[in-house]
Design a protein around this nucleic acid. Structure first.
Lengths: 342, 342
DNA sequence: GATGTTTTTGCAAACGTTTGCATTTTAGTC
DNA sequence: GACTAAAATGCAAACGTTTGCAAAAACATC
């Protein structure tokens, strides 16, 4: 057999082989009940036998549907460092599963936030049917513009934010509250908030932090909110500097991610601060290795798996002409060893 | 302006607007020098003004080229747990950068290794022009079959392995050697190899491990090779069990990834084993957080960024009809605090 | 201004599917 | 066996680009 090299098998070719028309083959392969069951099965068998595969470029052109979803990692303002956050990969992986389950494929992108017009880039150009953006970043104006253009869009971020697009995300305020209250209940008095309060999700967490303090009659001190990017190295440096300059002015830390918590942990350990006795730490995300930190990290768990399902669900809803809704995901405090037991 | 809603602007439409033929517009937008420079610029301006964007489905159909590369996370035998390894995300992120740089997009996939025929699935169906597989897994027969089919293919794995496809990967043997020798030089006598020696890359590392021991006249003991999946939790359990059953039978650990090292670290710390004085540990990968472990992890650094560039380069070579070559990437021992200073 | 070159544009045929509609085949009824 | 209804198949026109080739326009030369 010295052929099959140059000319791929096409629907027409398969039709000729079977002695039927292309429309029949097309319908048969799509399991269209218009075609008699026997012929359908015969043709499907023939197709697999010749391991025929449909040209998607052609069918996408014809149907005006790609069955692809663009997933954009929105890492606007950070170095590409923060792409190393395992939480992100988890979300992407779960999204991929969820998308595949519904027959969609995942086109990954991390660099197009810079480009002006990615709704056009992905949607109008027939590269994808919809967009999922992971992370709102500090400024949401770009996302808003895309939403205005009517592109099917779901964003992972702060679902409580006022927005003209569907946002799926955790109950960040509650997360901040629970983390803080847990520290208070385990005896902390001066609790540091470590993260960037200008960032949408983090600002919610900060609100929860403040609410918890007030509820327990603890003063909210400005100096105990330490602005910090979402990477462990930055967190490490910030904590190190803080201690260097002012000493150990706190006995608890609410970190805005597990990676941040890890950075803080390291800085504190290096100064022989005992965790959890001198300082308690609560992280956010519950990444896989959280329980492998030493001490195992108490943290607020975000359920990425069902979040992914819901994001896809909301996107599909938009494909069907409905309006995507924002959804608040529940969260959960996971008690481990980086805080005293309550 | 109450339109532009239903009917997207097409090349033909743009041509009519400009009063020229579609061929002219097409060439102009592709910056074809056949078209006079003035008209080219005029048309390009017109296109951006109406923010026109080419229908890729159509152009892909016509040109038989997708400008998409499928990246497959080859997680055959593991639970989806191991997708949380930050090393993977790093590789994917770097690949995305490298691909974009060359004008390609990244179609992510993690579940298609199960499907029989993914060369057909991606290539023949015009979903992608080429495939990059991350990880060879334990069995490479599936990959070999794809390679035989002639699909453009590059694999991240063990570049020294005999194969009919291009493999890019680190000098794993040397990595294993350097890690082991470093432990020996810092005084370790009974060194544990922690990882799965049946796995292609890991087996190379194991060879290096053996070579280093022999070179320094240390007996290679079977009981000191502990088979273990590439996840921290499994590593944690394995080490815990080992100590429980046999006590602390080793004074050094060569781990096959930083995540594995992390698991081991945790298990040892819980038993109050001092790192690095009682036991030294060397990891593999140099993930971002390696230096944030406590103690900071001595490890073998894999240069994912240039590896990604090279993988893309080798894939492009195949697009141009050349044969992809296997490439061995250099590695580097990063000394930190989980081993005694040499 | 006729001729030949070169530059610039346009025509029309693909690329491989899907799908509304028309047509053929089959089955059902008297 | 004639007729009607229902089921199964085929025809042919799209979908929106790109590109070989032909045609027209611009320019140069005598």
């Amino acid at each position: 057999m010295e052929l099959a090299n140059n000319n791929k098998l096409t629907l027409a070719g398969l039709a000729k082989l079977a002695g039927v028309s292309t429309s029949t083959v097309s319908r048969a392969l799509n399991d269209n009940p218009l075609i008699k069951k026997e012929t359908r099965e015969k043709l499907q068998a023939l197709a697999t036998k010749h391991n025929f595969s449909l040209n998607r470029a052609a069918s996408r052109l014809r149907t005006q549907k790609t069955n692809v979803v663009a997933v954009i990692l929105n890492l606007t303002d950070s170095t590409d460092q923060s792409i190393s956050d395992p939480f992100l990969l988890k979300v992407v992986g779960d999204l991929n599963q969820a998308l595949n389950k519904s027959g969609y494929e995942l086109l990954l992108s991390n660099s197009f936030m810079a480009t002006e017009d990615w709704a056009n880039y992905f949607i109008s150009s027939s590269r994808a049917d919809g967009i999922i953006v992971i992370g709102q970043g500090k400024s949401t104006t770009k996302i808003e513009k895309v939403a205005e253009s009517g592109a099917p869009l779901v964003v992972w971020g702060d679902p409580k934010a006022q927005s003209n697009y569907a946002v799926v995300g955790s109950n960040n305020e509650l997360g901040g509250y629970l983390a803080t209250e847990h520290l208070i209940k385990t005896g902390c008095k001066r609790i540091l908030f470590l993260g960037d309060p200008e960032h949408a999700e983090m600002s919610e967490r900060h609100k929860g932090y403040s609410r918890a303090l007030k509820k327990h009659d603890i003063e909210v001190i400005k100096g105990l909110t330490l602005s910090c990017d979402i990477t462990s190295t930055v967190a490490y440096e910030k904590i190190s500097n803080l201690i260097l300059e002012k000493g150990l002015t706190f006995d608890g830390v609410v970190a805005t991610s597990d990676m941040v918590a890890l950075g803080a942990l390291k800085a504190l350990k290096e100064r022989y601060v005992n965790i959890p006795n001198d300082v308690g730490i609560v992280g956010f995300d519950d990444i896989a290795m959280a329980e492998l930190f030493h001490p195992a990290l108490t943290t607020i768990k975000q359920n990425t798996k069902s979040a992914a399902d819901i994001m896809v669900e909301q996107l599909l809803a938009q494909f069907h002409g409905q309006k995507g809704k924002s959804v608040v995901m529940g969260i959960e405090l996971i008690e481990r060893k980086s805080t005293r037991s309550s």
